[in-house]
Amino acid sequence: MTDSIASLRHKITSAQDLESVVRSMKTIASSSIGQYEKAVHSLDDYYRNVQLGLSACLSQTAQLERPEVIVNRSQKDAPAIGVIVFGSDQGLVGQFNEVMVEFVVDSLAKLSGNKMVWAVGERVESRLLDTDLKTEESFELPHSINTITGLVGEILIELEAKRDQGLIDQVFLFHHKPEANSISRPVNQQLLPLEEAWQRELVAIDWPSNNLVEVMPDQDQTHRAFVREYLFVSLFRACAESLASENASRLAAMQRAEKNIDEIQENLNKTFHRLRQSDIDEELSDVLSGFNALN
């Protein structure tokens, strides 16, 4: 009986320690969610300025940007489709990476041609390796707002190199996006070539002032600069939204774990008190038996 009580005490102590860890992880996840959501909102004004710049460039162009202008197609071999997938580096996020990989596979199955995939996050990369997709160099997922810019720069350099070599023509971006009614949902976006419908929407944007717009000094150079900024903002936003979604998934997982731990603790405490009471009753019975024997 004593060994059972000692074992239960050890389990109760372990459950309390685990609950403390879970609460700490919940606090960190909650703080991170707010940090990344603020970063996403802070991009709105900057992205608006990039849109206005592209609108000005496209308005002074006789024709909309065509894929041939921004993609080198000199290679004889058919270029592949570049795919950037944001996932997680760490676990305890539920089905976060599994859902993303399934969404990527289903979406790319509708596109013909070879695919060249870049994974951002070790966990999602390991899931992608289990599929038929060809995975290129992976990137380490940043763990703070200050390191997102460096990651985006590395991705842009890699994409530019592959485009200059004529190895890719289209580029698609996959990531999780936070949702109000749910934790998050996987989304995709075509980065390159610039979609014609999207360009027409930019041209239709009303200029915020009555002054005439003039692109200078070099229209083509300015246009390319705004396209690069558009790519930068899109990748930065995708990374921040993915990190916010990852921490939301981790927070939900920790809440479920905390609930399970509370239930386990309640059962352990009930069992402990029952065994302890049984032990006390047995000791009292022994005392009474001894007392009666002496009488």
Rank of each mutant, 00 (worst) to 15 (best):
S32C: 15
S289M: 08
E179I: 03
V227K: 09
S20D: 09
Q199P: 01
Q219V: 00
Q277W: 03
V99C: 03
E282I: 04
R66E: 09
A29M: 14
P217E: 10
E65D: 02
I261R: 06
V85P: 11
Q63F: 02
F232E: 02
A39R: 05
E229S: 01
R276D: 12
L194S: 06
L284C: 15
I70K: 01
Q16W: 13
D262A: 11
E19N: 14
R185F: 12
N292P: 01
S107Y: 03
D169K: 12
E140M: 02
L231V: 05
A253Y: 07
S59G: 08
P178C: 03
L284V: 12
L275C: 04
V40R: 00
E154C: 08
E282H: 02
G290H: 03
V50S: 06
R274V: 10
A56L: 07
E196H: 07
K134R: 08
K11V: 00
E195D: 13
G150S: 09
G94I: 02
I145S: 06
D77I: 00
E214R: 04
L133A: 02
F236I: 02
V40P: 03
N97E: 06
G166T: 00
T149P: 08
Q95R: 02
E122T: 02
A244M: 12
I205N: 14
L243V: 08
V215K: 15
Q165I: 00
C57P: 00
M100K: 04
Q90Y: 13
V50E: 03
S209T: 15
L64C: 09
R276I: 10
D262M: 06
H143D: 01
A293S: 14
V21Q: 01
G113E: 09
G121V: 14
A78I: 06
E282W: 00
E246S: 09
S55R: 05
F226T: 00
G121K: 14
S138H: 12
R123Q: 05
R224C: 00
I70Y: 08
F232T: 10
N269S: 14
E154S: 01
D3A: 04
F291K: 13
E137L: 05
W207M: 02
R73T: 05
H273R: 08
F139Q: 15
L141V: 11
S289L: 05
Q90L: 04
A248N: 06
I168S: 11
K38N: 08
S126L: 07
I81L: 04
H223I: 00
E137H: 04
E283M: 13
L268P: 10
E136S: 06
R274M: 09
E201I: 13
Y46P: 00
C57T: 07
V71F: 12
S14P: 14
S209C: 14
E65I: 01
A15P: 15
R200E: 08
L191T: 15
L243A: 04
A180G: 10
R127S: 04
S242G: 15
